[in-house]
Amino acid sequence: MVVWDEDGFQGRRHEFTAECPSVLELGFETVRSLKVLSGAWVGFEHAGFQGQQYILERGEYPSWDAWGGNTAYPAERLTSFRP
């Protein structure tokens, strides 16, 4: 999975191949867009795999509404991930 700290695949970029309990440890404040290259990941609103969670299947997510636009409580950012 590849993530960016700005919408539209802009800004700082990082690629994950294993779980990440906090993007803050990588110098990111948040993740605002992402691409899942294969498989599925779970993205969490807060560090430590806490808060609202989203199943992220293979594909592109250019902004928060692409992963959470249909929920009652959409998270505008993700800060931890698990494959």
Score class of each variant (00 low, 15 high):
Trp67His: 07
Glu19Asn: 02
Val23Phe: 00
Phe28Asn: 01
Gln50Asp: 14
Val36Leu: 02
Gly43Thr: 03
Gly69Asp: 11
Arg58Cys: 15
Arg12Met: 05
Gly68Val: 14
Gly48Leu: 07
Asp7Ala: 15
Val23Trp: 01
Gly51Leu: 00
Arg12Asn: 15
Val36Gln: 02
Val2Tyr: 09
Asp65Asn: 15
Glu15His: 09
Leu37Tyr: 13
Tyr54Val: 14
Glu19Ala: 12
Gly69Ile: 06
Val42Gln: 08
Tyr73Phe: 15
Ala75Phe: 10
Gln53Tyr: 03
Val42Phe: 06
Thr17Phe: 09
Gly69Ala: 13
Glu76Gln: 15
Ile55Glu: 09
Arg12Cys: 06
Ala18Ser: 15
Leu56Phe: 12
Ala40Lys: 07
Thr79Val: 14
Leu56Ala: 02
Glu76Asp: 09
Thr71Tyr: 08
Thr17Met: 12
Gly39Phe: 02
Ser22Gly: 08
Gln53Cys: 15
Gly48Glu: 09
Thr17Ile: 12
Asn70Lys: 10
Arg13His: 09
Gln53His: 10
Phe28Ala: 01
Asp7Asn: 09
Gly39Gln: 03
Phe44Gly: 00
Pro21Trp: 12
His14Glu: 04
Trp4Ile: 04
His46Gln: 13
Glu76Ala: 13
Glu45Cys: 10
Ser33Leu: 02
Gly39Cys: 06
Thr30Ala: 09
Ser22Thr: 14
Thr71Leu: 11
Gly27Ser: 07
Arg32Val: 01
Arg12Pro: 00
Leu56Thr: 01
Arg12Ser: 13
Phe49Tyr: 11
Phe16Lys: 01
Gly69Thr: 09
Lys35Leu: 00
Cys20Pro: 01
Arg77Asn: 07
Arg32Gly: 07
Phe16Tyr: 04
Ala47Asp: 14
Gly43Cys: 11
Ala72Asp: 12
Phe28Pro: 02
Gly48Gln: 11
Gln52Asn: 11
Pro62Arg: 11
Pro62His: 10
Ser33Pro: 01
Glu19Cys: 08
Thr79Leu: 12
Ala75Asn: 15
Gln50Ala: 15
Val36Ser: 00
Val3Lys: 00
Asp5Leu: 05
Glu57Gly: 11
Gly69His: 11
Tyr73His: 15
Gln52Cys: 05
Gly59Pro: 03
Ala72Gln: 10
Gly48Ala: 10
Glu25Ala: 10
Ala75His: 15
Leu78Val: 06
Thr17Trp: 10
Gly27Asp: 06
Cys20Phe: 01
Gly8Thr: 03
Asp65Arg: 09
Leu24Gln: 13
Gln10Thr: 08
Ala75Ile: 11
Thr17Ser: 14
Phe28Tyr: 12
Phe16Arg: 02
Asp65Val: 13
Leu34Arg: 01
Thr30His: 15
Thr17Gln: 15
Lys35Val: 08
Arg58Trp: 07
Arg12Leu: 06
Gly27Cys: 05
Asp5Arg: 03
Leu26Gly: 06
Ile55Thr: 14
Glu60Pro: 04
Gly8Ala: 09
Met1Glu: 01
Val2Pro: 00
Phe9Asp: 00
Gly48Asn: 09
Val2Thr: 05
Tyr54Asn: 04
Pro74Tyr: 09
Leu26Asp: 08
Gly8Phe: 06
Thr71Ile: 08
Val2Cys: 06
Tyr54Cys: 14
Phe9Lys: 00
Asn70Asp: 14
Gly51Lys: 11
Phe9Tyr: 12
Leu78Asp: 03
Gly48Trp: 06
Ala47Tyr: 07
Ser38Ala: 07
Leu26Tyr: 15
Val3Arg: 03
Glu57Ile: 04
Arg77Cys: 10
Ala47Glu: 14
Ala75Pro: 14
Asp5Gln: 08
Arg58Lys: 11
Met1Asp: 04
Ala47Leu: 08
Val23Ile: 15
Tyr61Phe: 09
Ser63Trp: 03
Gln53Thr: 14
Glu25Leu: 09
Asp5Thr: 14
Phe16Gly: 02
Ile55Ala: 13
Ser22Lys: 02
Ala75Met: 13
Pro74Gly: 11
Ser33Trp: 00
Arg32Ser: 04
